[in-house]
Amino acid sequence: MLEIKCPYCGKRSQNEFSYGGDGNIKRPALGAEISTKDWDDFVYFRDNPRGRHTELWHHVSGCRQWFKASRDTATHEIFSTCKMNEDFNE
């Protein structure tokens, strides 16, 4: 079980959080013209890197804030976490 540092609450065990997927995904702007391919890339396609990965977590059983984590998908090392409007401080 991982130990994750919520940027609002501090270190908590993984069972308080839910995983929110790739943190690099940007939703296309509302109303923007977008090709089916680009839309499908946004909806369905995700990189699956071995190593460092920026991802989202949701402190569901805590402060209910979404935040970013930089995690190694192979070793589970979490290098840094930050609020959505921040950049990783490394």
């Binding site: 839910s18 939703r27 989202l56 949701h58 569901v60 209910r64 804030q65 979404w66 959505m84």
Partner: peptide, 14 residues
């Protein structure tokens, strides 16, 4: 639904 709403408010349209 609550998590979904929070996601859009906090992540997509802050």
């Amino acid at each position: 639904v609550l998590s979904h709403l929070e996601y859009y408010l906090q992540v997509v349209w802050p």
